[in-house]
Design a protein around this nucleic acid. Structure first.
Lengths: 111, 111
DNA sequence: AAAGTTTATCGTAATATTGCAATATACAAA
DNA sequence: TTTGTATATTGCAATATTACGATAAACTTT
């Protein structure tokens, strides 16, 4: 590469990029969708459901956890993850903030 | 790595990941924001504004173009890019489709 | 035609990401 | 204690991404 030049961009731009990166892999999209539907998320279940190795799932969960999108609680000897509602809302707002900046044809819904 | 196992996921999940990847770099976020605000986007202007090399900007524009998020028209001997409104709307919908699946506290806005 | 301007592409180097086997860690149950 | 179950971490190997200088290509201007 060369390392990403985060110094050239605003904190906001870098933050959006980090959140987008969490959604930038189909496995993480699948994990989040599973989490949203079942309102629970256990590594071993995902291994069966997604077909990726346990270590790989664990790594993806770690990334989502690092971004604070999900948070885990110990349940017996397994780990149960759930969406962090505060961050989730924040992401939704940040993304829509960008999406809604596009004024198409003076605001008509022509497209 | 090992190549991303797109075969394990749905077309929809892979597509969302691809769109997210476009937003997963601060330079591309900055480019899109510039485009949204000025409603135009010329490589040489971005070089001055962002501080990245011309080749680097061109590469980021290419990625956005590949995803069909932007489209370019020749203007004199420069290239002017604009948002593709159809794809933009599609992305917004796909993302919000996911964002809105999170039911917090039975729909109250407690968080 | 020659020189200038602008974008795209190529080649290369550095770094990041993805995937998984193997192992470590933690707790349950027998 | 031993065995079983579940997640995290480590250590690779392979691939992708990012960045930029150097060209190439296309068009404008002089």
């Amino acid at each position: 590469m060369g390392i990403t030049r985060t110094d050239l961009f605003t904190k906001e731009q870098n933050e959006i990029a980090l959140f987008a990166k969490c959604l930038a892999h189909p496995a993480r999209v699948a994990i989040l969708e599973h989490l949203l539907q079942k309102n629970e998320c256990v590594n071993s279940t995902l291994v069966l459901e997604l077909g990726l190795a346990q270590a790989t799932i664990s790594q993806h969960l770690k990334e989502l956890k690092n971004a604070k999108i999900i948070q885990g609680t110990i349940e017996g000897n397994s780990m149960n993850y759930c969406i962090n509602p505060v961050i989730w809302k924040k992401i939704k707002e940040k993304f829509n903030n960008i999406f809604d900046q596009h004024i198409c044809c003076g605001g008509n819904d022509c497209c």
